[in-house]
Computed example of a mutant assay.
Amino acid sequence: MTDVKAEPTPSGRGAQLAHTGLRHGWTTGACATAATTAAYTALLTGDFPDPVTITLPKGQTPAFALAAEELRDGGRTAMAAIVKDAGDDPDVTHGALIRVTVRALPPGSGVVFRAGPGVGTVTRPGLPLAVGEPAVNPVPRQMMRDHVAEVAARHGGAGDVEIEVSVDHGEEIARSTWNPRLGILGGISILGTTGIVVPYSCSAWIDSIRRGVDVARAAGRTHVAGCTGSTSEKVAVAVHGLPEDALLDMGDFAGAVLKYVRRHPVDRLTVAGGFAKLSKLAAGHLDLHSARSQVDKGFLGELARLGGADAELTAAVAAANTGLEALTLCAARGVPLGDLVARAARDEALAVLRGAPVSVDVICIDRAGTIVGRAEPRGPAGR
């Protein structure tokens, strides 16, 4: 029997965070765990709990409404599905339908995971899963195992099951993620360490940066590039000839790249990005998003002064409307503000690296992708 249901009830929706007014949401791992719990319960009892309650790693006990349920093969297979609610986070998987199909296995088989349609498969080393494994991360796997064991204990089951996780339109959704670059093919990953999505924490992006470093190191890459966007990425490739698996989609998270590379060094890191964003790094900001850091024209004026600008130009730069205007003013007077920003950004990056054995160079570009500033490689202690 198949029962496709309407919108989830409020119990399956993210709760409001009192200190921000924003709703948190649930990770794909939490949704898959809830679907697994419902499906395995139905496999043992014939009934799907709806809503289904799970326990998250930090003890929270959210309830999830089922969007679909089905018993097949004479009751030997059960499927439950949950719509992912990311709360107020701009998550590409928000609204995705997470399906889990549970099948009984022979005694002693344990819990076996399978990638269904829309869930990726690992094809490159360097990730926390072996090549060939479904892209269901370690914490969600453990959550599902724990809940299978609890359901088995409650209803007299053996706990030997195959868990197939699938995501409707997951392969299409994955094109908006890092998965293809990381060598995860065929769909999205089932993620989450706490089960909760905190709005605008961008934890998935930061995790992808870390996995990108891991994959590059596993592939033997000694030179990687953290780029703020696709234009700067193209420039980094043109300048250094880097392969795809050496490219990190840094976005605004310069700090995430630098802190992870500090703990997991590569020989050389290129930081490439727009002049305005990298001027923020030069001024000591590690989050380059416009909502969390601003271009400091006074800082640019001081850099210009140190680069030979007279008092009039220094004042004009400090009063400029935008970083681009400051750059243009200096270019007209022969002051290499782009190079000055690149060098300051490189030095700030080296400070964050805290002596890690990594050489850093920086490339600043304008909106058209023209290089407007360079800083040559420098490592710890000026090497």
Rank of each mutant, 00 (worst) to 15 (best):
A80I: 00
Q142P: 03
D91V: 01
A304H: 11
A32V: 11
G195V: 05
L105D: 13
E133Q: 13
P128H: 10
D3E: 13
A96T: 11
M79P: 05
R114P: 12
S201D: 11
D366R: 11
L66M: 10
P117G: 02
P180R: 06
G95E: 04
S109T: 14
C202V: 10
F299M: 12
A375D: 15
P357M: 07
A42W: 06
M1I: 14
E172W: 03
A345F: 03
D347K: 10
K280M: 06
D339L: 09
A18C: 03
A225W: 02
R262Y: 08
L247I: 13
G126W: 02
D50Y: 07
D3A: 12
V372S: 09
Q16N: 09
V198Y: 08
G110I: 14
H240D: 12
A291M: 15
A67W: 00
K234L: 14
R346W: 02
A115I: 14
G132P: 06
N179V: 08
E164V: 14
S11L: 14
P107V: 10
A32N: 06
A349T: 05
T53C: 08
V151E: 09
G183P: 13
R210K: 14
T9I: 04
F275N: 00
P8C: 06
G120I: 00
P51L: 03
D89I: 01
Y200G: 06
D207L: 09
R354Q: 14
L66G: 08
H223T: 09
T177G: 02
G334F: 10
V372Y: 04
G226S: 07
Y200R: 11
T228H: 00
R181F: 13
G118M: 01
H155N: 05
V122I: 15
K58R: 10
F113L: 07
P380Y: 11
R72F: 09
R333E: 15
E150W: 10
V100T: 12
W26M: 03
E244I: 06
V139D: 02
G118A: 05
G25N: 00
E164M: 12
M79Y: 04
A356K: 09
T123L: 04
A34I: 01
L185Q: 04
R124K: 09
E376S: 11
H264F: 04
G12W: 02
C202L: 08
L242H: 05
L303F: 13
R268A: 14
T61H: 05
P57H: 13
R103T: 15
D3H: 12
S109H: 15
P377G: 07
V165D: 01
T45D: 12
L97E: 03
A218Q: 10
R346F: 00
L129Y: 08
A236I: 01
V215T: 03
K234A: 15
V100W: 02
P357R: 05
L281F: 09
G29Y: 06
G229V: 09
H24F: 01
A351Q: 12
V102Y: 07
L281H: 12
G29K: 01
G273Q: 00
V271M: 06
R211V: 01
T41F: 07
P243D: 10
G212R: 01
G229F: 06
R263H: 09
P49G: 11
H24P: 00
P380K: 07
L278V: 15
